[in-house]
């Protein structure tokens, strides 16, 4: 599978590079991988390599980062990645039961993808929003708070 960073992604990465001192473009690798993932849906080895090439760093350096941080998807995911926090503070206000409900509705468990490729379900660790439990993050960036069964129904319906 070939991959190349599109113009918008390249420009976005260059804006990140500018935040760091001369010669420290490698500091932008986290943002670079996030941007490549947004463009492609998940991080193929080619996408990781493209980010490394753009930053002029060894591909292995980018690969190490991509595999260390949980929100990079180095395996294919569905169109919508649903992450439910089940850590203790959330679980006390229904985080775990919300996750059960999503599993039941989608017919999949954690780290699985629906057969139609629409949803991937992930178990989240503390997102730093425990007062909003149950909390769900869609595709890494969209936070959904106080997810009752009704709101979960509405969210899943909305994500086509």
């Amino acid at each position: 599978m070939t991959f190349s960073l599109n113009e918008a992604s390249r420009a976005a990465i260059d804006r990140e590079v500018a935040k760091y001192p001369e010669g420290q473009a490698i500091s932008a690798v986290m943002a670079g991988l996030r941007i490549a993932q947004e463009q492609n849906g998940w991080l193929t080895p080619e996408a990781i390599e493209a980010v490394a090439t753009h930053l002029n760093i060894p591909p292995m350096a980018a690969m190490e980062v991509a595999t260390f941080y949980n929100m990079y998807d180095v395996k294919p995911v569905g169109r919508w990645k649903i992450t439910v926090c089940t850590n203790l503070p959330c679980a006390l206000s229904g985080g775990e039961q919300a996750a059960e409900y999503v599993k039941e509705k989608l017919g999949i468990g954690f780290n699985e993808t629906t057969a139609d490729g629409r949803f991937t379900l992930k178990e989240g660790e503390c997102m730093g929003v425990c007062g909003d439990a149950p909390a769900i993050i869609v595709n890494n960036t969209r936070l959904c708070s106080w997810m009752s069964r009704e709101k979960i129904d509405a969210l899943l319906d909305e994500l086509k």
Binding site: S93, Q97, P134, W146, M147
Partner: peptide
């Protein structure tokens, strides 16, 4: 246990 830790959103201003 389940009743005590059920989905609780009644306080939320949403």
């Amino acid at each position: 246990q389940r009743e005590g830790s059920r989905i609780y959103v009644e306080h939320a201003a949403c």
